[in-house]
Design a protein around this nucleic acid. Structure first.
Lengths: 216, 216
DNA sequence: TAATACATACATTCGTGTATGTATGTAAAC
DNA sequence: GTTTACATACATACACGAATGTATGTATTA
């Protein structure tokens, strides 16, 4: 129809992102057409092509919206004022608290795990995930190395391998968590699910310090 | 062209499955058309529609081919002649040995993790994975319960939660393993990656018994 | 000869990208 | 303070290819 003010335009842009997020999560990325998104938003494809160049661009813009929240997590992980064991422990809990509290992160995470293909023409997504994984593992490894220097680790534990293991455990738990959508088992028993790995890594239960748990 | 003998027909059926497996793994399930598969196999869509009713049917047939191998794994996991700790330990190693040695399992596993959407019209896939996950966790839980009865578990370990944790760790490691395709780190250091969780679950290293490792 | 194992041809639908229309906001000219 | 000129924010329309499903053809083979 007609032109809207810049604020309204920005509003419809966010409406498109929100709607796309929803529809992608329901029908998968490849399974939804731009017409689906436009219709669900009460708009037309013209609106989408005005704000985004194509579906991939829209999808990327959609994913980028959660980066700040994730960076906060990482910043806390690397905060040297807290002992490394506690940092790791709280980081694990903070991840799931975020998943539990923030539906947007839950949906985008769900789309990445179950709602999109990462090969073929979506291969750039895979590369991004690989580098993201490596960065995350590097941070975990850094904290674990710090713990090793403070003689908190068991003697036979290699920080690099422990980082891979921890990261994989997190990823696997998130996957299980997403599969069993409304089963609260994982969320309610997260400590019991993580502690075996921590037991196997640290000499003592150094991670159990005053824990300002961000649970529900 | 012309009709072939039953054996030859069965042969082209397997050719189609093999080719589909390959192409699905390269370009994703949604990213692949039946024409792609037919062309890659040196046939036409007519051949596909003769042997399968549609893409989903083809995909299911493709996945079903690895069931026997996976059932062998589960059978060994439940073999009561071996102590439960060792069974769990060997089961973890056997899974990755299978992934390493069997390219078909590797590809199908890769397709499930990275090459297909599990929502929308592929939702039956998700339901299948959920029930499969629950069965697997139930088996792990059963073995862990058996270990608990033999007083092998630490006192604060709940078999059900430990089963979820172990299963998630396996899933996460497989995911990492698939992401870093030709990085052998995980395969070469599997024991070091798994042992922390085992340390945290069992009182002593009961799982370290003569290990007929099926590695490379 | 009848069913088989495909290949070929056809009709239809779906999705994309782009081109165009159009009404409004916005800023400068006067 | 209007008017003018242009940019904006979409909606609509169109053209094209891609993918599917089916119908039909055809040479074997049992």
């Amino acid at each position: 129809m007609a032109r809207k003010t810049r604020e309204e335009a920005e509003q419809t842009r966010h409406l498109l992102l929100d709607t796309a997020e929803q529809v992608f999560w329901e029908k998968g990325v490849a399974g939804t057409s731009l017409a689906d998104i436009a219709a669900a938003a009460g708009l037309t494809r013209g609106a989408i092509y005005w704000h985004f160049s194509n579906k991939l661009d829209l999808f990327n813009a959609l994913c980028d919206r959660i980066i700040p929240e994730l960076e906060i997590l990482d910043a806390r992980l690397l905060d040297r004022n807290v002992n490394p064991a506690t940092r790791l422990w709280q980081h694990g809990h903070a991840m799931f608290a975020l998943l539990h509290d923030n539906p947007r992160i839950r949906r985008i995470c769900g789309i990445h795990h179950l709602g999109c293909e990462q090969v073929g023409e979506m291969a750039p997504l895979l590369l991004e995930q690989i580098s993201w994984t490596q960065e995350k593992q590097a941070k975990l490894q850094q904290v674990l190395h710090c713990a090793q220097e403070q003689h908190l680790l068991r003697d036979d534990v290699d920080p690099k391998l422990a980082a891979i293991g921890l990261h994989s455990l997190y990823g696997g738990l998130i996957h299980s968590w997403l599969l069993a959508q409304d089963d609260r088992t994982i969320h309610h028993n997260l400590s019991a699910l993580l502690s075996p790995y921590f037991e196997g890594i640290f000499k003592e239960r150094y991670w159990l310090q005053p824990l300002p748990c961000a649970a529900e």
